[in-house]
Design a protein around this nucleic acid. Structure first.
Length: 610
RNA sequence: CGGGGCGUAGCGCAGCCUGGUAGCGCGCACGGUUCGGGACCGUGAAGUCGGAGGUUCAAAUCCUCUCGCCCCGACCA
């Protein structure tokens, strides 16, 4: 991987990138030759007339999400296949900016950058128990028939490395990180770079002697992540998240609110409670319960909750949805939620502690003797899990007899069940902690932090000797950030009707110089001077020197979202004035040429500090 | 994996129902007029109509299979 650190280089000092670690044949470092060759290199990179910045006038047909459309239109990326993208020069620069921030903040908490392979031997995944059962893993064989896979994450490699290199408590703690490509054969890539099969990830791993030390490493990461996302100009929440079927001791996700998000979080404005909906609990408002006595009612041709409620002329909240699932080991089990609620399958999975699937219609009939539309918990001879919201009240449930329902059923009295949280929280439910109304929002997961514990260290024998000379498993944590998701989330959150609005910190360049008439010698000279001066002053500038009409350049400048636009046109010819304009606020100042850098700095100062 | 949609020039699309010489806009090349918010006129280049098989005198169009892409859902250690 070529590590290019974006930074400010004056003209003539751009673009020397060295490949690391070329097996003893690294070219000798020598002073760079000044002059023509590098001037040309500079021109290729930052002049629109020579650059690969293929902007599109129209929205691409295949792009739905705002960030996807804009990343294509602004010439940041191109799609090679489903969920597989090429990053063009501008997109690559944005990633470089984000990665530079990631490195700074990871280094600040003691992180040591390493680079682990994309191709892994099967053995380490077999040892951790993850070789089988992950549908998203790309697997392959080498020419000798050995099993390999493409790394979807690197816990195994870290544990393998730790097993070899960490021996004593004196070697701990360690924080290792990399910025590396991950490969996951996603069931459904979508929304541009938000969910892809190949993507860059900053993943870090902490090695600690015990849980108390892990807590500190975890807190360090949370602090670093907050700084990273703050610097990238994002709005985000830190929420509790599900540790998943893999176990683990706790985890949080960093979530950027956006309509393009795939996840949902529940937030409480009152006490700050915030959790992924796969975990979030809420107290729904209870309906007024009629004084029913228990009786069977005929409900011919009535199957769904909506039909039941309509047929009996009652509030759907007075019904119970009875869902039969088949657990791998435990077999059939009923899950009950209130009629207006949705069951959250992750919650059920946690309660069951194993995999499950919805029962087939014939299995439903076999278990309770009635078709799907008429099933209910009363008299059913299968274990019953009921949502907590059903602890009180009397309801209408299926009678386990075709075309009939039971009215006046009280969970706990009329059937035995275990009450647990099963329903998907919705906006307006009361916070379990403080009682205020919860808000549910769509979010993009931009980072997560995860207390792993000793699962991988035990499996791969990553042990150390403690002060007493006893062998102990290393306690691990793992922490991820998706740079492309940061870029997409920034676009989603900040773009306006005219295009992208980059935060200063991750913009591919900071200054977009519009040379209104490329044929006018005086304008051109002035634009060139301003451009060179920007680079001398540490401002990364693009010069739009194309022979295009001004409108085309202005439209492109807006679309690309570079924070400051400098226009050299007729005002310069007439009055020696150039215009310096903020992309975000659209405020423009008219200054003489020598004050341009100062005016640009004023725009920067008005942006969010990074 | 279930459901829906779409593959025709670089991009966006029409043509398909009702088979008969492949079109429009943008972009691109050349010439001219323009030149502060995606100009105009003229000329021109560019398409295995996703692929394979079939029906037919004749297939972009009808049939079968197949590949790819998008959207919704499921899944996401």
């Amino acid at each position: 991987m070529v590590l290019r650190r974006p930074g400010s280089r004056p003209p003539g000092h751009l673009r020397i990138a060295h490949r690391r670690g070329q097996a003893g044949r690294a070219p000798p470092l020598r002073p760079r030759r000044e002059g023509r060759e590098q001037e040309e290199g500079l021109e290729v990179v930052v002049r629109r007339s020579k650059s690969l910045v293929p902007t599109l006038r129209e929205d691409p047909a295949d792009a739905e999400a705002l960030s996807h459309r804009l990343m294509l239109r602004a010439g940041l990326v191109r799609q090679l296949a489903a969920g597989i993208y090429v990053y063009l020069p501008l997109g690559q620069r944005v990633l470089d900016k984000i990665n530079a921030i990631l490195r700074e903040e990871m280094n600040a908490i003691g992180g040591q950058e390493i680079l682990m392979p994309v191709v892994h031997p099967a053995e380490i995944w077999q040892q951790s128990g993850r070789w089988e059962g992950i549908a998203e893993m790309f697997k392959l064989k080498d020419r000798a028939g050995r099993d390999l896979c493409l790394g979807m994450t690197h816990e195994e490699v870290v544990a393998w490395l730790a097993a070899r290199e960490i021996r004593s408590y004196r070697d701990l703690p360690q924080v290792w990180y990399q910025i590396q490509t991950k490969e996951r054969d996603e069931a459904r890539p979508r929304s541009g770079v938000l969910r892809t099969r190949e993507f860059l990830m900053k993943d870090s791993y902490t090695l600690d002697p015990d849980l108390a030390a892990l807590d500190k490493s975890y807190a360090d990461h949370e602090r670093a992540y907050r700084r990273i996302f703050d610097r990238c100009g994002l709005t985000y929440y830190v929420v509790q998240s599900d540790v998943g079927m893999m176990g683990g001791l706790g985890s949080h996700e960093f979530m950027a609110p956006s309509a393009a998000g795939e996840d949902e979080v529940a937030m409480c404005a009152g006490c700050g409670y915030a959790a992924n909906v796969e975990l979030a609990r809420g107290v729904p408002e209870a309906p007024a319960f009629p004084a029913w006595t228990r009786e069977e009612v005929a409900t011919p041709n009535v199957r769904t909750i909506a039909e039941v409620a309509a047929f009996l002329a009652i509030d759907p909240r007075l019904t119970i949805k009875s869902l039969l699932y088949v657990a791998k080991r435990a077999g059939p089990v009923f899950a009950l939620v209130r009629g207006d609620h949705a069951l959250h399958e992750r919650k059920l999975a946690r309660a069951l502690g194993e995999e499950f699937r919805p029962a087939h219609p014939d299995e439903v009939r076999a278990a309770v003797g009635a078709p799907v539309g008429s099933v209910g918990p009363v008299g059913a001879r299968v274990p019953i899990l009921a949502d907590e919201a059903l602890k009180t009240g009397t309801y209408v449930v299926g009678a386990n007899r075709e075309g009939h329902h039971l009215r006046g059923v009280t969970p706990g009295r009329d059937f035995d069940c275990r009450f647990i949280d099963l329903h998907t929280v919705t906006s307006g439910e009361a916070c379990v902690t403080c009682g205020k109304a919860l808000a549910v929002e769509k979010v993009i997961e931009i980072g997560n932090i995860f207390k792993l514990g000793t699962r991988y260290s035990v499996a791969l024998k990553a042990m150390y000797l403690d002060e007493a000379g006893r062998e102990q498993p290393i306690v691990m944590g793992s922490y991820g950030i998706g740079p492309a998701r940061i870029a997409a989330a920034a676009i989603e959150q900040l773009a306006d009707a005219d295009g992208i609005v980059w935060p200063w910190s991750i913009a591919p360049y900071q200054v977009y110089i519009v040379l209104v008439s490329a044929k006018d010698a005086a304008q051109r000279r002035a634009a060139e001077e301003i451009y060179a001066e920007c680079w001398r002053q540490g401002l990364e500038a693009v010069l739009d020197d194309r022979d295009e009409r001004p409108g085309v350049k202005f439209k492109d400048a807006d679309l690309l979202g570079i924070p400051v636009r400098v226009t050299i046109g007729t005002s310069f010819l007439k009055e020696g004035i150039v215009e310096v304009r903020s992309r975000r606020t659209r405020q423009e100042s008219r200054v003489v040429k020598d004050q341009v850098v100062e005016a640009i700095r004023a725009v920067k100062a008005s942006e969010a500090p990074t």
